[in-house]
């Protein structure tokens, strides 16, 4: 059993002829919380996509729990314990709330336990319980993000990647999102947080990776970040 839940080594990736990542390498420890920061277009979402198998790197290797998963289809990577809440709308808009949850729960669990997990998810997020037969596309932005998080509650993944989950949310809803993330961390899941809200992310994360133009420019503890880097990050991403 290795201590790293995710390892990228020498990864290059891109879209068509465009190259978005250049020789990116890093490791994430089991149960750790990592913030992945950088300016717009730095390649943060691309890293997330490579990690969850949505995008196949053109060079380099991806390892989950020490097992090489480079080039695997996303669903197989996911079955190894990687969950990914993508940027934008991380739910099925045309399915209702309950179907969104059932899709994940009933794949991971036997029927009876899945039904129990459904109840627990509703208990944890009462707002979703009220809207269980509403189409997810008609939920508010905050409710959609909650739904995305509720889906990983039943069987805690080894690693949860969240891509700009707080984008466009009111401060109080952002609080809620981060409270839920903290709970998920406490259940033993490692987190990779891509965030706009730098100070929020740094509060939760003990590890920081900074990406700039497709290359890693900082990889280390988030506590001993130099004032210079911190103010630079804050300047790039002014907090709301």
């Amino acid at each position: 059993m290795t201590t790293t839940v995710l390892e990228l080594s020498g990864v290059s990736a891109g879209y068509g002829r465009f190259r978005a990542l250049f020789d990116v390498s890093f490791c994430l420890e089991h149960g750790s919380v990592t913030a992945l920061l950088g300016p717009n277009g730095a390649g943060k979402s691309t890293v997330a996509r490579v990690a969850s198998g949505l995008l196949t790197p053109s060079a380099g290797r991806v390892l989950v729990n020490g097992e090489e998963v480079t080039g695997w289809p996303a669903w197989k990577v996911v079955s190894r314990g990687v969950a990914h809440a993508p940027e934008g709308r991380p739910v099925f808009a045309t399915l209702d709330v309950e179907d969104n949850l059932r899709l994940t729960f009933f794949r991971q669990l036997p029927r009876k336990e899945a039904a129990e997990a459904l109840d627990r998810a509703y208990e944890r997020f009462p707002r979703l319980a009220e809207r269980r037969s509403q189409l997810a596309g008609t939920l508010s932005g905050g409710e959609q993000r909650m739904l995305a998080l509720a889906r990983v509650l039943a069987v805690p993944p080894k690693l949860l990647i969240v891509d700009e989950l707080s984008l466009g949310l009111a401060p109080r809803t952002v609080d809620e999102v981060f409270r839920a993330l903290r709970e998920i961390r406490d259940s033993g899941t490692a987190l990779l947080i891509v965030e706009q809200q730098v100070s929020r992310a740094l509060e939760l994360a003990e590890h920081l990776i900074v990406l700039r133009q497709g290359r890693i420019t900082y990889d280390g503890s988030s506590v001993q970040v130099s004032d210079e880097l911190r103010s630079e990050l804050l300047a790039v991403r002014p907090d709301s």
């Binding site: 969850s52 198998g53 949505l54 289809p73 996303a74 669903w75 197989k76 996911v78 079955s79 969950a83 990914h84 993508p86 099925f92 808009a93 045309t94 399915l95 179907d99 899709l103 994940t104 794949r107 991971q108 889906r151």
Partner: peptide
């Protein structure tokens, strides 16, 4: 039904 909206999201739900 989920497939119609996004095959990639279905993959992220762990389904082939």
């Amino acid at each position: 039904r989920a497939m119609a909206e996004s095959p990639r999201m279905v993959e992220l739900a762990g389904v082939d």
